[in-house]
Design a protein around this nucleic acid. Sequence first.
DNA 1: CTAGAGCTAGACCGATCGTTCTGTCCATCG
DNA 2: CGATGGACAGAACGATCGGTCTAGCTCTAG
Lengths: 189, 189
Amino acid sequence: MATTRSGAAAPAQRLLDAAGTLFVREGIRAVGIDRVLAEAGVARASLYHAYGSKDGLIAAYLDDQDEADRGKWEKAAAELDSPREKVLALFDLAHGAALNRRFRGCLYLNAATEFPDPQHPARAAIDRHRTWLHELLVDLAARSGAADPEATAERIRLIYDGAVAGSKFSRGTEPIELGKRLAAELLPN
Amino acid sequence: MATTRSGAAAPAQRLLDAAGTLFVREGIRAVGIDRVLAEAGVARASLYHAYGSKDGLIAAYLDDQDEADRGKWEKAAAELDSPREKVLALFDLAHGAALNRRFRGCLYLNAATEFPDPQHPARAAIDRHRTWLHELLVDLAARSGAADPEATAERIRLIYDGAVAGSKFSRGTEPIELGKRLAAELLPN
DNA sequence: CTAGAGCTAGACCGATCGTTCTGTCCATCG
DNA sequence: CGATGGACAGAACGATCGGTCTAGCTCTAG
């Protein structure tokens, strides 16, 4: 087990944090290893010890973000009653994310854009996040009493994707607010 | 004026064609100048003579695609009567584009992902395409008798974005077909 | 026929990329 | 105590990047 020094997280974690800052802001390909190391205040060898390669760091970074995104939703959903409100919470989270990510859009869609190769290590995290979202929506649609949960989930997912993409284009949150309204219309109150 | 040799397009045009093939397939940053030159069968100096830099080529490539996309829609729309059908033609075009672009999603959203800097030359073409689409949808919504054309256009645009993005994730055309159905529901028959 | 523009081929540049390696420091633990 | 191992700093690697430059070829306009 790693013993962390007081006042600073372990190098592996600091690398994830630095990646989370730089990759979102400027894109993954655009940010070199040196930039990440400087931002994290970590030695070169530590990166390769912890993650093996830049691709390894990228995959770990996406995994980390995936886990964080799930956690945020679960925390928010725990305080809500109806499945309907739990769906709408996704849009609220997207709203907040758009603001402090400077309207850079969907993290996973961006990664898929920068690494089109289906064999790239980043793909695993992308697919995992996507599967989670799909199953979540199907479950919530079913529990909200939708006649065809699968179809309803597909519609909400399309709206969600459009909301986030539109927010990126327009650099504003209006599309996300509109998406929330459209999703609300699809779900029984 | 440029005189083209028989049997082969001019170098400047061949560069645009090569960029259209490689940039879509592998991403813009991932493709180096040398790859484009080899694919186009064009000399290095010709690229810098025609476009000045890689960024210049990228901007010209996006302009070219923008013009082509508009042209395809105008050609398709000319054969259609109702504004409603002209809107739905956008989804049919997206359907075809998804297939022969291997589900790489929206060209302009991808470019915005790879070049986050608002000052980047690629942004002009992105914004121009976006403005065209917006004004087109507002006009068509108005002519189809929508009570609030602006609001209707916003909804269709969100659906369109979600359809294309979803198609990229799932590597299939189902989201685009679903988007077409959702858009159809929004417009008076 | 000659002059010049357009295109090609390819060497070359400095910068940056991801990666490997050497060596030192220091906290932990047997 | 000495040994182990993580983290540090930084030089150096080969490859590739975007971009510049020279030289030669082929057309066409005058």
